[in-house]
Design a protein around this nucleic acid. Structure first.
Lengths: 173, 173
DNA sequence: GGGTACATGTAATCAGTTACATGATTTA
DNA sequence: TAAATCATGTAACTGATTACATGTACCC
């Protein structure tokens, strides 16, 4: 275990996914992120390979490598990894992420709001529809937290639709 | 001008602020970000010093340095910088930022939603109150885009309050 | 049996974060 | 005048992004 292994959100995503999967390769994790979590917190391809290596070096994961063929790497949680995840889950947070919305940033610096509304609305409406279809599929079968985060996503996309619709109509949002 | 200077959101923030300020030091920019923009898109201290240097190397800014005392660096837009900013502003975007909310991430992986709601609600309510006070102060005097982005922030914080309130009451959000 | 798409990684670069450092100004 | 705080940066590190590269399976 190297001297200091800082655990970032990316780290906990890997730990959380491996906790659910039992044992998995980076590629498995990539797939899992793509189906679900990635909608509100994606992890780029290369990180999904780099992060388990870091975590293994820190003692949070054990690694088993195929001897032949593709020489895939299989990871699973060590007791230290399980404990780190449990502690992180048990600690509620009041941290608030910044909006960091690219369209809003342009408007802040003087871009035309109505034009921005016209560009944003179709994409936002598509997202709402997509998420609503998805939530119907998974409600009841997926873990409650997964459904909740999807509902959070729907709420925020609807808020954007509300906001840009008013802007489009020249009303005060 | 070095071969390739990629312009990121941080770059455009620096360009946008300098466009409004005329001429400014990194420290001036830091202050300006702290009052307003930083609420929905902050830029860390060290970046505010590093980015103008990069932009100057790329030909987007000109630099003038005090000969004495603190040897402050004063930056201003070059014509290339003005054009880059104008083009960026003129191009609407349908890009959608991921939520990346730390509390939701924990709930996704199994943290207790009610406990998270209890931690989140006070902070979210404070933000709403703070923003609402601020918008009353600046409405009418600040540029419209600045007011709009503040209203966007209010909308999203209210959405979080709505969401976590329902979770707290055990209802479906 | 040749092309295309999926699977599985590595390497290089770049941006963002943390930590450190020092001069100037205000206040006790 | 000593202490505290504001102003102004630099350096080192680490994590994230982009680009590259190759093997395998499937399909036409």
């Amino acid at each position: 275990m190297s001297s200091e292994t800082r655990l970032s959100s990316t780290s906990y995503i890997v730990l959380g996914l491996l906790d659910a999967a039992g044992e998995a390769t980076p590629y498995d994790l990539k797939q899992t992120v793509a189906n679900g979590l990635g909608a509100f917190w994606s992890v780029p391809h290369a990180q999904v390979y780099a992060e388990p290596e870091r975590l293994a070096a820190g003692g949070y994961l054990s690694e088993r490598r195929e001897e032949e063929g593709r020489r895939r790497r299989y990871y699973r949680l060590t007791p230290a990894g399980q404990q780190a995840l449990r502690e992180w889950l048990a600690e509620p947070t009041d941290e608030m992420t910044e909006l960091r919305d690219a369209g809003m940033l342009k408007v802040f610096f003087g871009a035309d709001p109505k034009q921005m509304a016209a560009a944003q609305l179709p994409a936002r409406r598509r997202k709402v529809a997509e998420y609503e279809a998805l939530v119907e599929q998974i409600a009841g079968v997926a873990p409650p937290g997964v459904v909740l985060s999807l509902r959070a996503g729907i709420g925020h996309e609807r808020e954007w639709v509300r906001f840009w619709s008013l802007v489009e109509q020249g009303e005060e949002p």
